[in-house]
Computed example of a mutant assay.
Amino acid sequence: MNHNQKKKVLFICRNNSGRSQLAEGILRHLYGDCYQVYSAGSDPRAINPLTLQVLQELGVDTSPLEAKSLEKYQGQEFDLVVSLCGGEDEECPIFLTAARFIHQGFPDPREISVDNQLSPEEKLEGFRQVRDQIRDWIEAQFKPG
């Protein structure tokens, strides 16, 4: 499939440090021959090290991942934009130039990483759970054919 026929997918959330990076990395890893995959946030922050760690556990190449602002993609058109924000108290960004927009909420792993009650292993396990939820959803939603 040539580059121009690939569907363009943009994953968005607030900080582009956890969920949208997980989704970008996993979709590119599983079905990158069918999709051009991007992610961005309305308030981008450095990618959480645990995000990178749990992706690497799946064999995902994390080198192309970087925190990006939604502004980088203003004016570009996407076949699908997916917002990944979870809680009702979470402000989810809106992106208007999409052929299709869907919302699929997942818990914010950032909440896990700042919880001082949790041990490092518990934090890592929390990130794995979010990663696996996102992976399962991507496999169901994006599987080619």
Results as ranks from 00 to 15, higher is better:
64 P>V: 03
9 V>C: 04
133 Q>L: 14
121 E>Q: 10
47 I>G: 08
2 N>E: 13
89 D>F: 06
11 F>P: 08
112 I>S: 03
97 T>R: 14
113 S>I: 11
70 L>C: 00
71 E>Q: 14
78 F>S: 03
25 G>Q: 00
18 G>Y: 01
12 I>F: 07
3 H>L: 15
119 S>N: 01
35 Y>Q: 08
137 W>P: 00
129 Q>K: 15
59 G>T: 02
56 Q>W: 00
20 S>T: 02
41 G>D: 00
8 K>I: 03
97 T>Q: 12
90 E>H: 09
66 E>I: 03
80 L>N: 06
69 S>Q: 07
60 V>I: 02
112 I>Q: 06
53 Q>R: 11
79 D>P: 01
142 F>P: 02
34 C>R: 15
105 G>V: 04
109 P>A: 10
115 D>G: 09
25 G>L: 03
4 N>Q: 15
117 Q>V: 06
83 S>D: 08
118 L>G: 07
81 V>P: 00
70 L>G: 00
100 R>H: 11
8 K>Q: 11
32 G>H: 07
48 N>H: 11
62 T>Y: 01
30 L>M: 01
44 P>A: 06
29 H>D: 10
35 Y>C: 09
61 D>Q: 06
61 D>S: 10
132 D>F: 01
42 S>G: 05
49 P>Q: 07
34 C>P: 08
84 L>V: 02
74 Q>F: 15
112 I>L: 08
71 E>N: 13
78 F>C: 01
2 N>R: 15
38 Y>A: 01
38 Y>V: 03
37 V>K: 12
74 Q>H: 13
2 N>F: 08
144 P>Q: 12
46 A>W: 04
102 I>A: 10
132 D>K: 06
76 Q>H: 13
116 N>D: 14
51 T>P: 00
101 F>Y: 12
102 I>K: 12
44 P>M: 00
21 Q>Y: 00
114 V>H: 14
132 D>R: 11
39 S>M: 07
81 V>G: 03
119 S>F: 01
73 Y>A: 05
77 E>W: 11
75 G>P: 00
3 H>Q: 15
41 G>V: 00
99 A>R: 15
124 L>T: 05
108 D>P: 08
86 G>A: 02
33 D>I: 04
50 L>P: 07
145 G>Q: 14
113 S>H: 12
58 L>G: 04
109 P>F: 04
33 D>N: 09
16 N>R: 09
51 T>F: 09
28 R>S: 06
104 Q>K: 13
73 Y>S: 03
119 S>Q: 10
83 S>F: 02
140 A>I: 10
106 F>V: 11
42 S>H: 12
36 Q>S: 10
120 P>N: 02
4 N>L: 15
17 S>G: 12
57 E>Y: 07
36 Q>H: 06
56 Q>H: 05
100 R>K: 15
88 E>D: 10
63 S>Y: 05
6 K>E: 02
99 A>W: 03
12 I>A: 07
91 E>K: 12
49 P>F: 03
